[in-house]
Design a protein around this nucleic acid. Sequence first.
DNA 1: CGACATTTTGAATTCCATCAAGAAACGTGG
DNA 2: CCACGTTTCTTGATGGAATTCAAAATGTCG
Lengths: 211, 211
Amino acid sequence: MSKEELKIVSDSKISKKIKKGDALFREGEKLDGVFCVRDGVSKLSKLSGNGKDQIVRLASKGEVMGQRAVIAEESTNLSAIAVSDMKVCFIPKEVISNTLDRNPNFAVEVLRHMAHDLREADDVIVNMSQKTVKQRMAEAFLYLKKNYGEDTEGYLTLVLSREDYSNVVGTATESCIRIISEFKKKGLIKTSGKKIGVADERKLLDLIEGF
Amino acid sequence: MSKEELKIVSDSKISKKIKKGDALFREGEKLDGVFCVRDGVSKLSKLSGNGKDQIVRLASKGEVMGQRAVIAEESTNLSAIAVSDMKVCFIPKEVISNTLDRNPNFAVEVLRHMAHDLREADDVIVNMSQKTVKQRMAEAFLYLKKNYGEDTEGYLTLVLSREDYSNVVGTATESCIRIISEFKKKGLIKTSGKKIGVADERKLLDLIEGF
DNA sequence: CGACATTTTGAATTCCATCAAGAAACGTGG
DNA sequence: CCACGTTTCTTGATGGAATTCAAAATGTCG
């Protein structure tokens, strides 16, 4: 991307602060631009027929939300809700489509990014359909540790509610809670209030592999 | 896409015939190009930890396979296996990447296509995690009817094995068979050998909605 | 026909969602 | 700071859904 173009995109950014629990957008809305996360984490979820949310992915610093809808010129299929306080910047869709048309490299860059998202989505499909709830819970904890890290005491940096966990894993909140307490009893994880920490990574991995 | 470029792509195509059951490629392989389906149908599947295949999507006439891997310059995450006899054409990756670099419109076109795939993948994730096996079976039949049509007697044009059905839906083959016979008894579908036909679209829809 | 894969049914078991109800945490206004 | 209503978390009990293992029936192909 050339310097002038980088400047255009950069100038057209609008910064926003979003409070935990507030929505950046909701499924079905038309977006006039994309959001880029500068700080904090957002969940991207979709309402299912039975009234439950399914969290499809999480977006944190440096990640972009809404590009699928803007590119396809459709309304969003997902809602974006802040899981923690956030700072985001907004880039109007005209800027996106102009840059796309003018700059093949930018397009290819976006393409790569979407190819990556698609691969992850394929993996999630397989996990959802072939793994047990326990295995998916174990994966979720390892994923959160890997992507968001842990504090000095070994607890996951990103703190989610039990309901959010269940919406990531696609299960009932009670099942999720039961599995957390089972994992704790077996020493796979540790808890402190809402915080959860990975205690035995190896055993979690074994569980995922089916031992 | 300009005429010259169209010609380049067209000239570089290589036609292949693939027999039912044969693989176009297998997960983990590196691809040196993409496949475009001219005739027949292929399943795109991924092996899960427990040894079962999960069919992520089906590709038929006009659809392209392998573009994700080629664009991301990774090995494929999916296997492509012919569900019926097929004719496909192969386009080398150099041709793809050259065209991508030169032609912003082509890139945007591919981008739109991938945005569409991503949306569908999101929907599948929600279906897999929130719907029952029965509901997913019902959806599968309606999907197959809508996308591949039915013969003069009302049976689905695309004939899959029971195992393939179960791999689409993400369930055990026995469960899948039991549901088929239940649906038949209730008059939702009809069968004749391996062939399956939609008998009562409305009732299938009701079942999906949870009645 | 015989060998092999696919389809079908049966029964036992495990997994998970749901309903109900109690305990702990949280915020808010007095 | 406490009393309160509200939300979130936790545990128990139960029924239904789906997997698994086993075995029989049917189909397919050399």
